[in-house]
């Protein structure tokens, strides 16, 4: 069942992408259009299922309560920016797969830091330092007038009892399991029903940075 729906999920976006992009990606032939790599934009939930299958129930349900949203946003410059590396790294740090993913790939307890480790939602991107910067000093080069928007509000259900929508963009954050379950999860955004793996069965993306569009029937 799942496999089938996955397949359907792939064909749709392929066609849609072709239509939207048009010749922007120089589609030479229909054969070429199949080569468009949608693997990085898996909004179809495939990743969630795989990750759910691979994570033991006890781990999903565990909670260290160590991390909170304040700390989560302290490492960021705006909602959705890649967090800085909050711990020391060797000067020779090359940010490669084995170095970072040995802890951040699967999570678990780190005796070195005495903490449960947060899990990356995008382990397929292995050049970690491409986006995540170390912190050598907190001193600024000069003053900045940087401002950004408030982080998305939590628990904004459309009805009093309905499941809250997903408030953030899913780009590079498609895997709900990695951030919303397990002992390394941020306490305020941890789910209480981690035994259910099909997150997007109930939670629909309604990105808070976009206005809510109401359905209007197209005119004749």
């Amino acid at each position: 069942m799942m496999k089938q729906s996955e397949k359907r999920g792939w064909v749709g976006p392929c066609i849609a992408a072709c239509c939207i992009l048009g010749a922007a990606v120089t589609i030479g032939s229909p054969k070429h259009s199949a080569a468009i790599d949608l693997g990085n934009f898996d909004h179809q939930g495939q990743k969630v299922f795989r990750s759910y299958e691979a994570t033991p129930e006890t781990y999903l349900a565990a909670d260290s309560g160590d991390r909170n949203l304040a700390r989560f946003y302290e490492l960021r410059q705006y909602p959705g920016s890649p967090p800085r590396i909050p711990h020391g790294v060797e000067a020779s740090f090359s940010g490669d797969e084995s170095n970072c993913l040995s802890c951040h790939g699967k999570g678990g307890y780190s005796p070195e830091f005495g903490k449960f480790v947060p899990v990356t939602p995008h382990p397929e991107n292995t050049l970690c330092y491409q986006c995540h910067a170390r912190v050598i000093t907190e001193k600024a080069f000069g003053e900045s007038d940087w401002q950004s928007i408030r982080p998305p509000r939590l628990g904004r259900s459309f009805l009093s009892s309905s499941p809250p929508p997903i408030p953030h963009s899913l780009q590079l954050r498609e895997n709900c399991i990695s951030c919303h379950t397990g002992p390394g999860a941020v306490v305020e955004i941890r789910v209480e029903h981690s035994s259910r793996g099909n997150c997007r069965q109930c939670h629909v993306p309604a990105v808070q940075t976009a206005p809510v569009n109401e359905f209007v029937r197209p005119g004749p």
């Binding site: 909170n68 949203l69 304040a70 946003y73 302290e74 960021r76 410059q77 705006y78 909602p79 940087w146 401002q147 950004s148 928007i149 408030r150 982080p151 998305p152 509000r153 939590l154 628990g155 306490v187 305020e188 955004i189 808070q208 940075t209 976009a210 206005p211």
Partner: peptide
Amino acid sequence: AIATAGALFPGISFGSWPQLANNSGL
């Protein structure tokens, strides 16, 4: 949950960056 967390961790506002004056979030 923001209010809750704010109560749990008083004095800490979410987002370490200065926020827009006209902060619609959009």
